[in-house]
Design a protein around this nucleic acid. Sequence first.
RNA 1: GGUUCCUUCGUCUAAUGGUUAGGACAGGAGAUUCUCAGUCUCUAAAUAGGGGUUCGAUUCCCCUAGGAACUACCA
Length: 492
Amino acid sequence: MSVRVRYAPSPTGLQHIGGIRTALFNYFFAKSSGGKFILRVEDTDRERYSDESLNDLYETLDWLGIKWDEGPVVGGPCGPYIQSERFDIYKKYAEQLVKEGKAYYCYCTPERLEKLREEQIKNKSEYQGYDRHCANLTEEERAEYERQGIKPVIRLKVPTEGKTTFHDVIMGDITRKNKDISPDPILLKSDGFPTYHLANVIDDHLMGITHIMRAQEWIPSGPLHVLLYNAFGWEVPTYCHLPMVMGKDGQKLSKRHGSTAVREFREKGYLPEAIINYVTLVGWSLDGSTEFLSKEQLEKCFKMENIHKNPGKFDYKKLDWFNSQYIRMADDERIASLMTPYLVNAGFVSNPPRDEEMGKIRALVKPAKERMKVISDIVELSRFLFVDEPVMDENVYIAKGSDLEKTKTALERGGEILFSMLREKKSDEEIETALMNLSQELEIKVNGVFQPIRVAITNSQVSLPLFDSISLLGIEEAERRLSRALEMIKEK
RNA sequence: GGUUCCUUCGUCUAAUGGUUAGGACAGGAGAUUCUCAGUCUCUAAAUAGGGGUUCGAUUCCCCUAGGAACUACCA
């Protein structure tokens, strides 16, 4: 039987790291086993649903380059793949269970349930959950509720005796006593929409899902789902509960740990390949030593057996490392086009950039590439090129081990040497040597000469290398800034 | 509280019934004749604790401790 797996998110928020990790695992498992990857939108919660979330789902998967074989937009033989469009199916199956005596109508109001819950908490009752008030209603009682116009929910009859076991590829057998399973969970809400449990089981069956790969937070409801499959007389798929992605403190990764939405990472300038690579390495590994894995490689070598049991913490620093590595590996032209929006946003270049601005951006790639962790770093790295904000504090110009006098000299004579040699088209090495000689003469470290010049030209203590900066800026402008700095320093 | 699950360096992980318990990130030290970054070298760092089984256990079993998830007309 060929593999069919699905990613079934609920469009109630932006796609986050944990979610796309689940998507990735499903996708890679499908690809590596020659199966199908299906996308299904579980939008049965009308309260929390948002169009923005749905768009974000498509955009994020698209950005990551994850294509689904069946699902919304692309269609497929088991559609529709959006649960809100499958309304009638769930209703039909839920009513079938009622007819067969495996489920029942419940007319309890939210108010009664709330009161019940409060009492259970107050009395520290061991027994928590629904009290099965409506489990054995007579026809008369039902008719009375209907007359009152109460819209019922449908609840599953969960056995009070025995136990239910399901097998998980990663976890092994997981058993729960039936009396510990949520007593008679709601299958169909009073608005006619299914709850997760119902819709999920029906769709997984109808769509021929062979392996259910989902986060471990679903383990507790596994037995309930098995009960549902049994109630329908359907075969139970293979379960594979994925370890969760945690924050630094060991709790479920959430906003308070930092960015979690993939969109935020994209906006900061993370590359999709870095996200994919790093995220799949949380809770999975190829061999313990391979660090770099492309999407294409993972599509081939992903093995379910290598998935871990224990949850993994999300390490932002390691992601940064991956990202900086991928930036370096990336094509220059691609980096240039990735940098452009940040420069436009910063107001450094026009939108769209003029040819001459595009030239500057391209020239920026080489020196900037290996010092960016994220693409947005380019804004600070290139600020000196587009805006001129001279440093007025003379102390910034003075390198460690140097002093004001020597710094003046370094600026004056170093500048002369630098620009005359640049005009003579001397090599960087030759100029460097000349400046080194000057530093020896002044009895200061090489940096005592370089730092003031660099600060004068780049307006910053931290910058791209001097020669790169000058060639980016142009000799004229660099010289202008240097003389200005010299004037300023001379007055001190 | 109840139920279920988890436990190798700070973090992600590798390994085998017998190894100096390996790699990577982060950290520390040094090098790199321009800052920052990068690169290179070196370094420190783990089998949660206690019992078994065994000639031998990080690996198999049990207990304890710690952590997590779930416990909705949310998924």
